[in-house]
Amino acid sequence: MKILVVDDEADVQPLFLQRFRREIRDHEFEFDFALSGEDALNYLHDKHSEVVLILSDINMPGMSGLELLSRIRHEYDEPPPMVMMITAYGDEENHRQAMDRGANDFLTKPLDFNLLKEKLRTFSTE
């Protein structure tokens, strides 16, 4: 399962690669990264068919995660990728907006990677 992680913090990348070291080695998951909403849209433009799940931060300079979510829902319908939103502000407002805009799930920072793994496994077996 290919997962696109969108976060403006570059260090998210080694973190995911290490956290999912075994899963990646066992070819359970495959990760790609984008540093902004714009980046992510460009990536999807080329490879949207490969990506099964998008994990996006909400709070990013430029295009926010919520805007990215809306664009994805608007532009990539066939098949609709799963989108999980992550934000540092674990508040109702962002949660509601993410859900309104069609997010499949919602995670708060700091990320609980065990919970994330579980959720990803649930998605991949669905």
Partner: peptide, 21 residues
């Protein structure tokens, strides 16, 4: 708070993952 939270998350995450490693 946000600016401090982010690096702190990384400190925690990288320590956790290092223990696993």
């Amino acid at each position: 708070a946000h600016e401090i939270q982010n690096p702190l998350n990384f400190v925690n995450n990288f320590s956790d993952v290092s223990a696993e490693l």
